[in-house]
Design a protein around this nucleic acid. Structure first.
Lengths: 219, 219
DNA sequence: ATATTTTTTTGATTTAAATCAATGATATTT
DNA sequence: AAATATCATTGATTTAAATCAAAAAAATAT
């Protein structure tokens, strides 16, 4: 039942039963395969989405066709609220990278029925500040930090990812080329800041790595 | 009177008199000189600001000391709401580039008294989506577009600015060096896409300039 | 186990923009 | 008007990272 799912979504937790019923009327649950797109950059928004399962990658495309990863979302996330609220085209593309399900809400009807509710608004504020944090992090890593610092940061924050993803996937996630990733890793190895055995990475010199991650030090 | 100013701020327009009184209690109006800083990047937030007069530049600083301009704000703008709401350090520095005044609101008290009001929340949502638009525009121009495209875009959108600001100020605004600005302008001149007489710029070939502004064409 | 495909690494080259340095123009002050 | 300071342009060099190309290593299929 849609309604049972809705109760688990923070945005709607507090809503009384009749409001939930209304919400159910204006939304539906949809399944998405890996690679399927929730919405494209530039598209006119009609629906609000709540990611219930799976994983979504949000990216922008340059004229040259390069995809710039902005963020990834896991469940439960509100997606598309900015474009809908502002009535502007989606600023980026949202694509499932792990198959999942989403609640698809007709925004126009949502606006009419729910946008006067202080608690829904509060949740919306939370979701929007979350987007701001995400954009901020993106700017910090892409504009403020060098490729080297970004790699160091990833190593400090979640080096397990190197055991899960292929290098070319990590590179894409960091918006760098696999060649650059490879070169930086081998420089880190040569300088005994990390050690690599198979897929596993060991951090030998966390202080230096930390400095590199802040662009306070070059290798 | 502070209260009269408050009535002119969209965020508070709808508030009843007694609420405005309360707001007056928890806030004060302050004047700022050109160059004065409202808050620094990394600082713990305590106040919410509403820019009533003047102009503010928001920028991030890299480790190398390069200042990256994110946005500029004119009156009336709500500033600092994200950091306060999320209780995270200010993500950027806000500096007056034109002297002005700001309403300084104690956020803790604001939260207690106003954050349950649906209309205030709605305005907050509006302000936050505005920030998202601004960050988006920043990403679009800095990460997605080349220096050349950014200059072309500025020429199309507000070439008057070349009559007001010095080239090094425009360059700083675009996060490029004056040398790059100079070189791109002279290339545009050489290709008869623009003509420059004194401080004034005339656009001779808007179509080409438009293509350049989207990185669809190189010069 | 060998062959094939995919991924990673290495090396050489290119690129866009910054930096460095010097010169040329414009403003401002004296 | 001359002197000085500020700003803009030009040329040469550097830089970080991308690109191109090929080899090496690892994973997968036969």
């Amino acid at each position: 039942m849609v309604i049972d799912e809705l109760k688990n979504v923070y945005l709607f937790k507090h809503l009384p039963e009749e409001k939930l019923k209304k919400l159910e009327e204006i939304s539906k649950i949809k399944n998405y395969e890996r690679g399927q797109v929730l919405f494209f950059e530039g598209e006119k928004p009609e629906n609000l989405y709540i990611l219930l399962e799976g994983k979504i990658r949000v990216y922008k495309t340059t004229f040259k066709g390069i995809e710039i990863n902005i963020n990834q979302f896991g469940p439960v996330s509100l997606i598309g609220e900015y474009a809908n609220f502002e009535k502007v085209p989606y600023p980026a593309t949202a694509e499932f990278i792990v198959e999942g399900t989403a609640l698809v809400i007709n925004y126009k009807k949502f606006e009419e029925n729910f946008l006067k509710d202080a608690e829904v608004l509060f949740s919306l504020v939370k979701s929007l500040t979350n987007k701001i944090r995400m954009l901020n992090r993106f700017i910090e890593s892409t504009v403020v930090l060098s490729a080297e610092a970004r790699i160091a940061k990833l190593l400090l924050e979640s080096k397990e990812i190197f055991e899960i993803l292929k290098h070319y996937q990590i590179a894409s996630f960091l918006n760098i080329t696999p060649e650059t990733l490879s070169r930086v890793l081998s420089r880190l190895k040569k300088n005994k800041i990390i050690a690599v055995s198979g897929r596993e990475i060991k951090i030998l010199d966390p202080e230096k790595l930390n400095k590199i991650s802040k662009d306070e030090m070059l290798i």
